[in-house]
């Protein structure tokens, strides 16, 4: 019996349980509102969202791998493609595109034209520094860390700040080799 081929994002998306996208975006909105009330500072909110995303990402990766049958990626280019075509589709129902590679192939942009998190959202003037979807960058960072890639994920363009698309810059800092975890003498 051969291993199952990787499934496309659409196939996985069709097979997993869905919740209403409005329920999802309103719940997320409620979280952001609560954080803004609790922390008062926009920068702190960004940080907190990123941390929450990270905690989600380190768990979500296993669900992603189990359901998508994706195996190890040969290089970072393949990783970016898998995130954009399979990952985003599976969990958010949208597809991102990958663009703007640097010459070394260690950083690229994920471009989202459609983002279910921001339905019904308008940023008030007091929140101009807020990266409303900062949870996404945390999720990507956490998930990639579990497959041995240290990355830095930043927002470059944000439709809530008046840009025409969402652009996430993903930069590969380091691939961590697998080390033997025990010391010789214990």
């Amino acid at each position: 019996m051969a291993p199952l081929p990787p499934r496309s994002g659409d196939a996985v998306f069709a097979n997993v349980e869905h919740v209403n996208a409005e329920l999802f975006s309103l719940t997320y909105g409620a979280i952001v509102r609560q954080l803004l009330t609790d922390l008062e500072e926009v920068d702190e909110v960004n940080k907190q969202l990123d941390q929450m995303g990270y905690n989600i990402g380190i768990r979500l990766i296993d669900e992603f791998l189990a359901k998508s049958n994706v195996s190890r990626c040969a290089d970072f280019r393949e990783t970016a493609d898998v995130i954009a075509k399979v990952g985003f589709k599976m969990f958010l129902g949208v597809t991102a595109s990958v663009a703007n590679w640097d010459t070394e192939g260690t950083s690229c942009s994920l471009i989202l034209e459609d983002n279910p998190l921001v339905d019904f959202v308008e940023l008030p003037d007091t929140c101009q520094g807020l990266y409303y979807c900062n949870i996404l960058s945390g999720v990507i960072r956490g998930a990639l860390e579990m497959v041995s890639m240290k990355t830095e994920v930043t927002w470059v363009r944000d439709m809530l700040h008046g840009d025409d698309v969402y652009e996430l810059r993903v930069k590969l800092l380091k691939q961590v080799p697998e080390e033997y975890p025990y010391k010789d003498d214990d």
């Binding site: 990766i61 296993d62 791998l65 189990a66 994706v70 195996s71 190890r72 990626c73 579990m146 497959v147 041995s148 697998e178």
Partner: peptide
């Protein structure tokens, strides 16, 4: 006397 089957996910499980 036995068979050992092994699977490793890319996340290291």
């Amino acid at each position: 006397t036995y068979k050992l089957s092994f699977m490793e996910s890319p996340s290291g499980i």
